[in-house]
């Protein structure tokens, strides 16, 4: 088989992942895109391993490691996202700009007063029929109500 096929497929998948990472707003979607990038790399590794007929099978071993690390990464990443969502009522990463340089005019960073705008979008994000009833969302709703 032509080595260019898997190589090109891997490149394209990687770039699709890059696009997702850069363009997606929801943190979980970003994580998915990261998975795509990792998989592209895995494909590359496997293809080259098979091509080289490596006696150590370094490519496949590394792929297994990557998959394991990806599993660990997704677990931790999701835990972080859930925590952020629980505390902020949103998992939009372009809203998580707590590290931004505060403007000289404004009184505080974007995350300080729990900004009313945040609460509004949190309500928008909620499914019309209130999909989940986890404590996290209850808490977020309570917060929204309290500030409203």
């Amino acid at each position: 088989m032509h080595l260019a096929y898997p190589a090109v497929l891997a490149s394209l998948l990687f770039c699709v992942g890059v696009y997702g990472v850069l363009a997606r707003r929801n943190a979980i979607l970003v994580l998915m895109s990261v998975e795509l990038m990792l998989n592209a790399v895995n494909l590359n590794l496997v293809a080259f391993d098979v091509w080289l007929r490596d006696t150590l099978h370094a490519g496949q071993a590394l792929t297994l490691f990557t998959i394991t690390i990806a599993a660990a990464e997704i677990g931790l990443g999701l835990a972080i996202v859930l925590l952020v969502y629980r505390n902020r009522g949103s998992s939009d990463i372009d809203r998580l700009t707590g590290l931004a340089e505060p403007r000289p005019g404004s009184s505080g960073g974007p995350l300080v007063p729990g900004a009313a705008a945040d609460e509004d979008t949190a309500d928008e994000n909620a499914t019309p029929h209130g999909t989940t009833d986890t404590k996290a969302t209850e808490k977020a709703n309570e917060k929204a109500e309290a500030s409203a």
Partner: peptide
Amino acid sequence: GLMLTKAP
């Protein structure tokens, strides 16, 4: 994760 963060 999606469902816990109220995916619509």
